[in-house]
Amino acid sequence: MQKAHTSFALALSLFLAVSCTNNKDAEQIAPSLSAEASQSSKDGILTSELSKPIGMSIDQKNQIWVSQSGTGKNDGSVVVVTPNGRVQTAFTGFGSQVLPNNELGGLGHVLYQDGMLYVLDGLNGRLYIIDVSSYKAKDAPVPASSLNFIAIKPFVLSQNLSNPLDSNLYDLTFGPDGRLYIADAGANAIISVNLATKALSVFARIPNATPTIQAVPTGIIYDGSKFLVSTLTGFPFVTGLAKVLQISTSGVVSDYRSGFTALTNLAPAKGDDLLVTEYARFVFSPPVVGWQPSTGRVANAAGTTVLGGLNEITDIERINPNFYYVLSTAEGTIQKLKY
């Protein structure tokens, strides 16, 4: 069986090899964008200056906190994108390494809430907790070595959740109990973190997509009554096999929506609708073997394409009831979407 970490890391790194995580709770929606931000976003692109971005989260000033995976030299970073598209580095020196299989291990997603930034280091299995309430645009970058973190990987490995043992902390959300819930794409599980006591527990295990293909959880949100989790599925990334799963507050996992391909993230939409991001289509026939360029898309819960022709997208963030940001790791862009 293909390792969950390998299959998920492959999904995010094949493009890099060939060419060289989030505050989405339904009730936590940022204010409307300013006129300045709208005018600066030509053709819907807010910025194209990011470097291998993975996840994003928006604060009350409409600043976008973005994790970047780095180049494999422990140079992962978190940058801030202003409402008019300026990019500034806030934190540097997070884990980033080229793994023995030539994949890139690094940061997962970020989540902003109430002046605090939560950053997942998938490579080292850490949850960084950073007070950014006094952050200013011209502050010098802060090294990750000076930041507080909770070591989560040792706990995950001790639970014997995968064979071989693996952990790849990828996305996170707050639950109704104030705990953080982390989608671990290596262990194929959801990990609960009590921030008050630092206690860790296994909230749910994600079942395989088929007897031989792992589901690989990617995005996670809480919609007010249940958790929703997007799945990538492991190699060979079969078209139509990916699902959105629902998890009750007691940890019971069941299917919610199916028929998707290589899902990487999700966000709530009006009513009971949902938007999901498909990374790309994977094929084994020439001339391009692997992830096909510009085959990613944003789709709704019914599977209808909302925005197509995208290139390896890894995150979608709701910024108000009608607008979203979509993040492309291949293009280094944040694009505005109306739905």
Results as ranks from 00 to 15, higher is better:
Gly219Asp: 00
Ala26Met: 06
Ala144Trp: 07
Thr249Gln: 15
Asn188Cys: 13
Gln335Asp: 00
Thr239Glu: 15
Thr89Ile: 10
Ala242Met: 06
Gln292Gly: 00
Ser250Leu: 02
Asn322Gln: 14
Trp65Asp: 09
Val98Asp: 05
Ser133Arg: 12
Asp177Phe: 02
Thr239Tyr: 12
Leu307Val: 08
Leu123Met: 12
Ile319Tyr: 07
Ser230Tyr: 01
Glu317Ile: 10
Leu16Pro: 00
Asp171Val: 05
Ile152Leu: 14
Asn160Arg: 11
Leu245Arg: 03
Gly105Arg: 02
Leu241Glu: 03
Tyr128Ala: 12
Val298Asp: 12
Val202Tyr: 13
Asn101Met: 07
Ile191Ala: 12
Asp139Val: 08
Ser167Ala: 12
Phe227Leu: 09
Gly70Ile: 04
Gln28Val: 14
Ala299Gly: 02
Ser167Asn: 08
Ser258Thr: 13
Asp177Met: 06
Pro287Ile: 08
Leu241Trp: 00
Ala185Met: 07
Asp59Leu: 11
Leu172Ile: 15
Thr233Phe: 00
Asp315Gln: 10
Ser32Gly: 05
Ser201Lys: 12
Gly70Asp: 05
Leu46Cys: 09
Phe94Met: 13
Pro164Thr: 03
Val216Asn: 13
Asp223Gln: 08
Arg126Ser: 13
Thr314Gly: 04
Thr92Lys: 13
Tyr118Ile: 04
Leu107His: 04
Phe260Ile: 00
Asn84Trp: 08
Ala199Trp: 02
Leu14Trp: 10
Ala280Ile: 06
Phe91Thr: 02
Gln63Cys: 14
Thr21Asn: 07
Phe282Ser: 07
Glu36Trp: 03
Ile206Cys: 06
Val216Phe: 04
Leu263Lys: 06
Ala187Ser: 14
Ser258Tyr: 00
Leu180Phe: 12
Gln113Cys: 01
Arg179Lys: 13
Gln159Ser: 05
Ile182Cys: 08
Lys243Asn: 13
Gln246His: 01
Ile334Gln: 00
Leu165Gly: 15
Ala137Arg: 03
Pro164Ile: 04
Ala183Leu: 02
Ala151Asp: 15
Val283Cys: 00
Leu120Val: 11
Pro236Tyr: 09
Ile334Cys: 01
Leu200His: 07
Asn74Leu: 03
Ala183Gln: 02
Leu165His: 14
Ala11Thr: 11
Leu157Pro: 10
Ala301Met: 10
Leu107Gly: 11
Ile45Asn: 08
Asp255Asn: 15
Val288Leu: 12
Ala151Lys: 11
Ile247Ser: 01
Asp255Phe: 07
Leu327Pro: 09
Asn163Ser: 15
Glu27Leu: 09
